[in-house]
Simulated scan of single mutants.
Amino acid sequence: MIAVNTMKCACQPCLCVVSISEAVQKEGKYYCSDSCADGHANGKGCGHHGCGC
C-alpha cells in the first residue's frame, strides 16, 4: 500500500502542491491556502511564489 502525503491544490488554476497534513481542508478537498479554499472570493491569489492563481 502506498500512502499519499502530497497532492495538487484542489483549486483548478492553482499550480501548488500541498502537504495533506498542512493543507486547508474544505468539503473533502485539500487546498494550499484559505484564498483557494474560499474560491478567491476576495480576489486574492494564493500568494505562493511562482503561482498565478
Rank of each mutant, 00 (worst) to 15 (best):
30 Y>W: 15
52 G>S: 11
13 P>L: 00
52 G>A: 12
22 E>M: 03
5 N>V: 14
26 K>W: 04
5 N>Q: 10
38 D>A: 14
18 V>T: 08
52 G>I: 07
49 H>I: 05
3 A>I: 11
38 D>H: 14
24 V>Y: 06
25 Q>K: 13
33 S>T: 15
30 Y>H: 11
1 M>S: 10
24 V>H: 14
33 S>Q: 02
42 N>S: 14
38 D>V: 05
8 K>W: 10
50 G>P: 04
20 I>F: 04
22 E>Y: 00
16 C>S: 01
10 A>V: 13
34 D>I: 12
29 K>T: 06
22 E>T: 08
38 D>G: 08
4 V>L: 10
20 I>H: 11
48 H>D: 04
8 K>C: 05
17 V>P: 00
5 N>F: 12
16 C>W: 00
3 A>E: 12
46 C>K: 07
46 C>S: 12
26 K>N: 07
41 A>Q: 13
10 A>G: 09
40 H>Q: 07
16 C>E: 14
39 G>E: 09
5 N>K: 09
21 S>P: 00
27 E>D: 14
51 C>I: 02
11 C>P: 00
28 G>R: 04
17 V>Q: 01
17 V>I: 11
10 A>C: 07
12 Q>L: 15
38 D>R: 10
37 A>N: 02
37 A>L: 12
31 Y>S: 05
4 V>E: 11
6 T>Y: 02
20 I>E: 13
28 G>D: 09
24 V>P: 03
